[in-house]
Design a protein around this nucleic acid. Structure first.
Length: 335
DNA sequence: AAGCGTCCCAACCGCAGGTTG
DNA sequence: GCAACCTGCGGTTGGGACGCT
């Protein structure tokens, strides 16, 4: 037996809702409340399926929805809840009044997830990535890094990278994350080394050696170890054989320590996202010491190109990074 | 100004679990 | 207990907006 089959769904309108449809739906629900979604379209005079009506109401027309950008507090909440709950968007949405699961899901996929990846964290586990693919990813995102490796360019900065790379591939221990971070060791925009390198005629080359955002912001865990190591030996790039990797950003967030600030996770890499500078730090250079290589090449850490969604170069040009998978798998060394 | 590539998000799709007759 | 419906959820996508060349 069971229920009679539902009516045919042919001829039902799909796609974006117009103002008239919205009004019909809002008026109907204001009068009758959200009840049976299957019968609602017919009763409300809408040529939509009940599912579409429900979605439109829940995600857009509901009066208690909060509009506008996510606040820093909301972002932190999402990150913490995601670490605990995973992709349980509805459960996460329950903890964020006025936000829908769809909205949170979209925000995660378009902002937070990418940010974690750029910073070397696994977006699912929220732990620093230590696998070879992650290393290759970040290396590939430095665009010319692999070319530098293959071509054995004599650039001192790349020599540093190669040293680390060599260690990385020889290493089987926990040093790997630090080695990854070193590969993206950035250089100060407009620094002598940048000016001296003919390879840096384009933004892509600048990307390979690190570039800065217009805001000058951008700190990240991946930078911590290399800058620490370098500052410890400012004139001699002796590499720490057992460098330590900073704790996960969540653990620091939970602890609410200054370490979270030095980690700089909430230093927005995109000026458009840098809404409130929540840690009150105007520049990454505040706690990222400059260092000098054996060839007297000054550098500091205003930003990391591997985590920039938009790279701003000294000549005012800018570019965007591509999704890591594309970069990685398009690279000759992978193919 | 046009073409192209990328980003973003509203909306759709398919599935799973609960409900109903 | 079964079959079909209903609801909610998470993954995916289409197309408008935007920026760059």
């Amino acid at each position: 037996m069971g229920r009679p089959p539902s009516p045919a769904k042919d001829g039902v309108k799909k796609g974006p809702w117009d103002a008239e449809e919205d009004k019909k739906l809002v008026d109907f629900i204001a009068k009758h409340g959200p009840g049976c979604w299957i019968s609602l379209p017919k009763l409300a005079g809408l040529n939509r399926c009940g599912k579409s009506c429900r979605l439109r109401w829940i995600n857009y027309l509901r009066p208690d929805l909060k509009r506008g950008n996510f606040t820093a507090e909301e972002e932190q909440k999402i990150l913490r809840l995601h670490e605990i709950l995973g992709n349980k968007w509805s459960a996460i949405a329950m903890q964020l009044p006025g936000r829908t699961d769809n909205e949170i899901k979209n925000y995660w996929n378009t902002h937070l997830k990418k940010r974690l990846i750029r910073m070397g964290y696994d977006p699912m586990t929220h732990e620093p990535r230590t696998d070879l693919m992650a290393c290759l990813t970040i290396l590939a995102m430095s665009t010319n890094g692999l070319n530098d490796l293959l071509n054995r360019t004599p650039l001192d900065v790349n020599a540093v990278k190669l040293d680390y790379l060599k260690q990385m591939f020889q290493s089987t221990d926990a040093a790997a994350p630090n080695l990854v971070s070193s590969i993206s060791a950035p250089l100060l925009e407009g620094s002598p080394i940048l000016n001296s390198l003919p390879q840096l005629e384009n933004q892509e080359a600048a990307f390979s050696l690190g570039a800065t955002t217009t805001s000058g912001h951008l700190l990240q865990p991946l930078h911590h170890s290399i800058t620490t190591a370098l500052s410890a030996s400012p004139t001699d790039l002796q590499l720490d054989p057992q460098p330590t990797f900073p704790p996960s950003f969540e653990s620091m967030l939970f602890e609410g320590t200054a370490a979270a600030q030095s980690c700089g996770f909430f230093q927005w890499d995109d000026p458009a996202e840098n809404i409130s500078d929540p840690w009150g730090l105007e520049s990454a250079s505040e706690f990222v010491p400059s260092f000098t290589t054996q060839t007297d090449t000054p550098a500091s850490n205003p930003a990391d190109a591997t985590s920039c969604s938009r790279i701003h170069c000294g000549d005012g040009t800018s570019g965007r990074y591509s999704p890591w998978t594309e970069i990685l798998f398009d690279h000759p060394i992978i193919q």
